[in-house]
Each structure stands twice: as C-alpha cells, then as structure tokens.
C-alpha cells in the first residue's frame, strides 16, 4: 500500500483493535449476508492496522450502501449508482487515503453501470465491493440486472424476462481490468482472504460478493450454501489461498490469475459458483498516478498566472 504523501501517519505507535472500527449497530435484516461482509471488513482493517482516519468507505444507495455508517472510519454515503465517481474524486487528489467502495448489484450494474465500466479502465487504487444479492431489497423486491431469469419480483411478477448480466465477464472485458475476484458471504475464510488480496493489490480491485438476502432471494444461493460440492474454488499459489477450506471444498480448478483468456472463459459459466481470483495484473497504469497532481506553491502559481496573462495583454 502506498504510504501517505501528505504527512506521516501516526500508525506506527498506535495499535487498533476491532472496537476502533466499530460504528453504529447494523440495521440489516437478521441473516443478511451484509453482516458477514462487515465482519470480514472489520477483520481486514484490524489485520492491516489501518488508521481509521485514513480509511474511507464510499457507497451509493441500497441495503449494501448503509455499510459506511456501521464503521468508525470516514464514510461517504452518496447517491444511487454514483459511489465510484465520488471515490475517484477523493483518490485522485488524496492518494494517501485507503478507499473502499461498497455497492449493491443495482448500484453497480444498473444505474451506475457507466461509472463501473470507466472505473475499471481508470484503475484507480481502491477496493470495490459489489454485494450481489441479485435483487433490489431496500425498495422491496424489484428485479435487478443480476436476477436469475424467471425470478419473480414485484416489477416482474411473471419472472425476470432476461438472462442476468454477468458482472465478472463484463469486468474482465474492460480494458485495464487489473483485479477481479468472486467470493461468497457464507464462506468467511474465503471472504476475508479475498478482501485481503484485493486490498493489497495496487489498482482497482473488483470483488463480487455473492450475498444472501434472507427476505427475497434466499433460494438463489441455498444449494450452494448447503452443499459445498456445488461450489468450485479457483486455486493457485498466486490466487486466493485458504488452506482451511481444502477439506470442505473438494471441487477445485487450478487457475493462474495472470491468464486473462482462461479467466474470461471461467467467468462465463455463471452456474458454476466459482470462487477465487480470476485475474490480477499489478502492472497496469493507475489513473491517479498518470494524472498525479503536483503541489505548486501559491506564489509560484501567481507568478505563472501573471506570465499567462501576459499572453492576453494589449
């Protein structure tokens, strides 16, 4: 992770425990997968010893976007679909901040889809968590772009008309994609290891978290939750390494995360419940570095502007 560019943090002589990251009591439904993500994130912050004031959670609107309120860091709970531009603006000028973006599937793949595509391309160093419960929960059960075909909702009671959008394939299809992973809320060890890898990657880390909604889409993940043989782990020494899952999850596919073509092929099959790191490339250009603003002293800016005005002088 980059050190602070603006001043030296005081992290060295402070020690943070889980309490330091705890915000308001989460108001998600009992059994909601978001609780598990929150727990894993708090564990990550503690294990990486991130100073709360240097840590920034940005979100949009939806169940998942309540996330920042439940942490004791800086938080920005903005508008539907627009977390990524805000996070880009923050990170562009404050690369010293550790930025996490939390979105739902509607936030990211529907109303904010343009920002999603371009955020991948900008490859700004941040972690983007897409908590995908495949339904609009907060607004009471409407079809999401990731809802399975046939899923009955209040807006499409006859069942979703279209096949779902595949967020992994989309992400892997965008130029400059640098980190693409999938994990699930009900596999905490994998979730944590994925968050850690995402955080440690320098670039835009896109993590799709398969997330249960106990209210509306409980059926969708039921089989995969109950039967580990329905889940396939992508394994590789450079991937998400979780030794404690070796016994439980027997289906494993070796996949080198530097192999983009295979990553795309593996991502295509949505039904396979593949968890792991699809792709990672730490060498791609990062927008905030390409465009890195420099600090020019005020008097020098005035002198330069005076020289500029000379060009317009009569």
């Amino acid at each position: 992770m980059t050190g602070s560019l603006l001043f030296t943090t005081m992290e060295e002589d402070r020690e943070f425990d889980l309490e330091d990251y705890t915000g308001a009591v989460a108001r998600w439904c009992p059994g909601c997968g978001d609780h598990a993500v929150l727990t894993a994130v708090q564990r990550l912050l503690e294990s990486e010893q991130l100073a709360p004031e240097q840590t920034m959670f940005v979100s949009g609107i939806g169940c998942a976007s309540r996330f920042p309120h439940y942490l004791h860091t800086y938080g920005f709970h903005g508008i539907h679909g627009r977390a990524l531009p805000v996070a880009t603006g923050i990170k562009l000028h404050r690369p010293d901040l550790r930025v996490f973006v939390v979105m739902g599937d509607g936030d990211c793949c529907s109303i904010g889809a343009a920002h999603w595509i371009h955020a991948i391309r900008y490859n700004v160093d941040m972690v983007a968590l897409m908590l995908d419960n495949q339904v609009y929960g907060l607004t009471k059960n409407q079809t999401s772009p990731t809802s399975p075909k046939g899923y009955p909702s209040n807006t499409q009671p006859q069942g979703a008309y279209l096949p779902p959008l595949n967020p992994l394939s989309v992400t892997l299809g965008v130029t400059n994609a640098s980190f693409v992973a999938q994990t699930a809320d009900w596999v905490p060890a994998h979730l944590f290891a994925t968050l850690q890898a995402a955080y440690r990657h320098r670039g835009f880390s896109f993590v799709r978290v398969l997330q249960r909604c106990p209210q509306y889409t409980v059926e969708i993940f039921q089989q995969a939750v109950r039967d580990p043989s329905k889940v396939e782990l992508l394994v590789h020494p450079n991937g998400i390494v979780v030794p404690e899952l070796d016994q439980l999850y027997q289906r494993k596919t070796p996949h080198d995360p530097s192999d983009l073509d295979t990553a795309r092929r593996l991502a295509d099959d949505e039904g396979a419940f593949r968890l792991g790191l699809f792709y990672r490339n730490p060498t791609l250009p990062r927008y905030e570095e390409t465009r890195r603003p420099t600090t020019i002293a005020a008097d020098q800016r005035v002198a330069l502007l005076n020289a500029e005005l000379d060009r317009y002088a009569l």
């Binding site: 531009p85 805000v86 880009t88 603006g89 923050i90 990170k91 562009l92």
Partner: peptide
C-alpha cells in the same frame, strides 16, 4: 461526482 469527491477530500 468527481468534483464533489475531491472537494470533500
């Protein structure tokens, strides 16, 4: 959004 994010920061 980028302008707001930068201003916020």
């Amino acid at each position: 959004g980028v302008a707001i994010g930068a201003s916020y920061a």
